[in-house]
Design a protein around this nucleic acid. Structure first.
Lengths: 309, 309
DNA sequence: TTGAGACATGAATTAAATTCACCCTTGACA
DNA sequence: TGTCAAGGGTGAATTTAATTCATGTCTCAA
């Protein structure tokens, strides 16, 4: 079946370069006898001789020349592949396919990716849209390599790294009656229309961290895709919404809406990067997490109230 | 040193195509255990894992994908090389580097080569100009693959195949005194200028087969490169020459010169193809000898007096 | 909870590559 | 002509590696 092997190609190349079995064997750190046997065996399997030994330097037959040709094609490729693999092994490169749970995270993730790519140009980067429903199993499985999530679930083989914290605030119209309050109670929203991204409520801080614990349901939930749309609806009094403070910052500065904390303390989710533990230490992955933190801190300076790590 | 081997590449490809170790092992005619060990060992040497086994089908890591890329580059090349080698082994192709002792043989050798090339297009053909001095050792050594020679020397490992016989005739000017004779005796040439190709006398039929046995030396020997030149010199009475009857045929028809046999019987050299015994049976080589014979017979029909089996 | 399927693992086995010790051949040189 | 060194070949012994066998573990699904 498999006749020729890498080792044979290396032997032939060494033979071409040295001109004799003895010298070739020294280059290959083998005895001359080993090469003699090796080549004899190969020639036997192939059914033709590869070179004539009675001359110095040895003279290759057509078959030998054909094999050298093959070696010249194959060995360099093998070599570069092995160099690449060394870099994979050293964690100097790899693949980061991400998923985000937090819908407005693109705002800081895309700049982070850009910054990272400058330094780690050959890491394969992608944001997956396919695993919104269950990103962590996909991460464990290897479909994903990094998940941005607000609630770390303790799972074997997954490590979490905090990126930053932000306040999830309620945005309301400037003429809304709730502007009177200095912070919002869950019950305040029982009669309100809540506008959210079109995602499951279990992935929204407002519900998981505020309304559900208090057993309150809003009068109605409306959906909009884009942050701008949501804020516009809020500004025109069609409902209220809950967004990260940094996502609202721009609209607040332009005086479109009012914002209030949820509860006296406010709700302060932390975003984590979840990665597989075996990759957590790899330089290319650690670097990504570092860059993400730095970019967040730089982009959101003065907006987010807390920086981590 | 040498990490990755062909067998690993094959395994990975089988794994990609089948999706599981079990099925891949069947394709490779190995046990599942063997593949498990094999891959574990490779992963250990490389220092990184190549695929995730907990999914069906298996999912390759970046490193695994890189190796599959290598496999896709290498395995097809390996395969075509092995096919080529099979043809070498089967004698379906090879290399024929020839040397000719007989200076005027180009006349029929070149057409023979052309005819041969039609059928055996990928046999490497060349006429070497480097081994005139000692073609047979070069043949034995492997520098040459075929030698056209008029005197077979019994040497181990060399086989001779007769191509054809011709008469070596003396050409003389139409007004030369020797036209009186119906054939030439060696002594007739003792006073003559002999014109030959610029090669050693031991490679000329006239000397080895006629003059030397009789202990006769011509008055003078002149040289000319081209057959035409030689014949012109002869026609203008500057000397005599000895050429194969088929080389003289054209000039004879145009009535430029007269020809006479050397001795009553004439000298009838036979041209042989000498090849190494190990190649003598190879179809590509046997075919060349066949073609050479046929072409000679066709081209020299009615000129040479003898065709050989 | 059990059973089936897929992969992992340690020990035994088998197969292969390599070495060792020796031989032969060749060419240089005394 | 004999000897020596260098290159290569070969059978048997040895070492190394690949493969199998017999189990074990894990996961998924009934």
């Amino acid at each position: 079946m498999s006749q020729v092997e890498i080792r044979h190609l290396r032997t032939l190349v060494a033979l071409r370069e040295s001109g004799s079995l003895v010298e070739a064997s020294e280059r290959m750190f083998l005895t001359q006898s080993a090469l003699s046997h090796q080549i004899k065996e190969l020639e036997g399997r192939l059914g033709c001789s590869l070179f004539l030994r009675k001359t110095r330097p040895v003279r290759f037959t057509s078959a030998g020349i054909r094999l050298l040709e093959l070696a010249d094609e194959v060995l360099p490729r093998l070599h570069t592949a092995e160099l690449d693999l060394q870099r994979f092994a050293g964690g100097e490169t790899g693949r980061i396919i991400m998923a985000i749970e937090c819908h407005s995270c693109f705002e800081w993730l895309l700049p982070a990716i850009d910054a990272y790519r400058d330094e780690w140009s050959d890491v394969e980067l992608d944001i997956s849209s396919g695993f919104h429903f269950a990103p962590l199993p996909a991460l464990a499985r290897g479909d994903l390599d990094l998940v941005i999530t607000a609630d770390p679930v303790d799972e074997a083989g997954i490590a979490y790294f905090p990126i930053f914290s932000y306040e999830a605030q309620l945005a309301i119209a400037k003429n809304h009656c709730l502007v009177e309050k200095s912070w919002i109670d869950p019950e305040d929203l029982a009669k309100e229309v809540v506008i959210t991204y079109p995602v499951d409520q279990n992935r929204l801080d407002l519900f998981t961290g505020f309304l559900q614990p208090a057993g309150v349901e809003p009068a109605k939930v409306r959906h909009a895709e884009l942050t701008t749309m949501i804020v516009q609806l809020v500004a025109s009094g069609r409902g209220v919404t809950c967004l990260p403070n940094w996502a609202l910052h721009e609209y607040l500065q332009n005086d479109y809406v009012e914002v209030r904390s949820l509860g006296e303390e406010g709700i302060w989710p932390t975003l984590y990067a979840a990665v597989r533990k075996d990759q957590a230490e790899a330089p290319f992955m650690a670097a990504f997490i570092e860059v993400a933190k730095k970019v967040c801190f730089a982009n959101l300076r003065g907006i987010v109230t807390a920086e981590l790590g």
